[in-house]
Amino acid sequence: MLEATLKQGQLLKRIIDSIKELINDANFDCNSSGISLQAMDTAHISLVHLLLRAEAFDPYRCDRTLSLGVNITNFNKILKCASNDDQVTLKANDEGDSISLAFESGKKERYSEFEVKLIEIEADQLGIPDTEYSVLVHMPSAELKRICSDMAILGDTVTITATKEGVKFSASGEIASGSITVRQDASADDEDDNTLIELNEPVSLTFALKYLNIFCKSASLSNRVALSLSKSSPLLVEFKFQENGHIRYYLAPKMENEGEENADDE
């Protein structure tokens, strides 16, 4: 069985809130080392990989590997019933058909319990190959969020070009075109404000801004974000939650001569 308590329920609330636009249903795979989730969006353009290590919970107990399929929208609705400072406990039996959520307020004066029905999801587990990325950019997540929302004013796609001069985000559309360049800067007093660029090889790739802007909803989970780019590989956008886990988004690059239709959803 699974029993896991998160002291800061806010973390789970924010995680689910940030992925709800991307995926409809997903399996929480639970084992003794923690809880993970891997899912593709409905259009199969991006992949989300979430990991919450056992250390993120106190206590954490999971005797057997469990796969708990949930509808993310419904799960999010239930989590909205928890306050930000509530302690959240997840419980599931080995053969059960539901997951139970318990929210306890900081002063313990309020205790709520919910049972969410599980669903059966047939999804292949995808293996993620180890890639040596050509460029690695560590930057404040708020800065990436701002860049992506600014670029979305101009067009549907952004071209990320990394050279030794810096990393340039450029977009163009009917009304205007523009670019934002970020450069290496390690001088800020607060380490979180630094921008660090590791460049092995210059690279230039184009991505759908719609997805990047959805990824940036995770900026509330971490002050820092890491972008990893490599030619003919998906873009990796990673937000780490201290040492206790991460949420990684993989986004397929736009191919040359490709129309906009791929970004269409139902």
Partner: peptide
């Protein structure tokens, strides 16, 4: 599904159960 242009699937491999 796996042949749709821009699909993310092709960058990953299926894990054996």
């Amino acid at each position: 599904q796996s042949e749709t242009k821009g699909a993310i699937d092709k960058f990953f491999f299926k894990k054996e159960t």
